[in-house]
Design a binder for these strands. Structure first.
Lengths: 91, 91
DNA sequence: CTGGATTTGTACGTATGTATT
DNA sequence: CAATACATACGTACAAATCCA
């Protein structure tokens, strides 16, 4: 689950803070690794993910963009974002 | 050089259109490859690059973010963005 | 065939927080 | 303390592609 922690206006930021967009990446990668979202699976729309996580669409997009760049996901305009058929090559 | 081509309001979009943020990535990678920006070199600030390219800071950031993720660049808050000392591992 | 709805992709803008000089 | 610069988060707008009634 993604917790925004109410950063704005908070007194102190925890040392182990993980940015929301990175939490999004972790959530998605976890679902892929666990098999909940197998290769070819279509993800919920950006807007739906934003509603689910209670964060802005732009922040979801930020995380998804990096997974697209990394090769974990494949995006198709008008269709959706899908789990890559072949996992990205390890570093 | 980055040319925005005046997308908004244009009659037709060229088939070989490359997004502005990708042109930014190419420009930066070209300067790194050519040796103009060697490892450890500090890049101009995001704002300065935006002025140079005549695009918005957010779009520069979009390209820089992906190069940071890919390992080509290293960012340091309050300091700037630097060419990575060691090039990212090839895919 | 046409038009609307949906969804990704791109671009821009604003605000705030954090780190360094 | 002030200025600079990156990092994050949110928001808006429009274009392009797809699907479907």
């Amino acid at each position: 689950m993604i917790k925004s922690m109410g950063l704005a206006g908070s007194i102190a930021m925890p040392a182990d803070f993980t940015p929301l967009y990175r939490q999004v990446m972790e959530e998605i990668r976890a679902k892929i690794s666990s098999g909940e979202w197998p290769p070819g699976h279509r993800l919920p729309s950006t807007r739906d993910l934003a509603v689910q996580y209670d964060i802005s669409p732009g922040t979801v997009r930020e995380g998804v963009n990096r997974l697209l760049e990394a090769g974990d996901l494949r995006g198709h305009q008008g269709l959706g974002v899908f789990v890559a058929e072949r996992p990205p090559p390890p570093v």
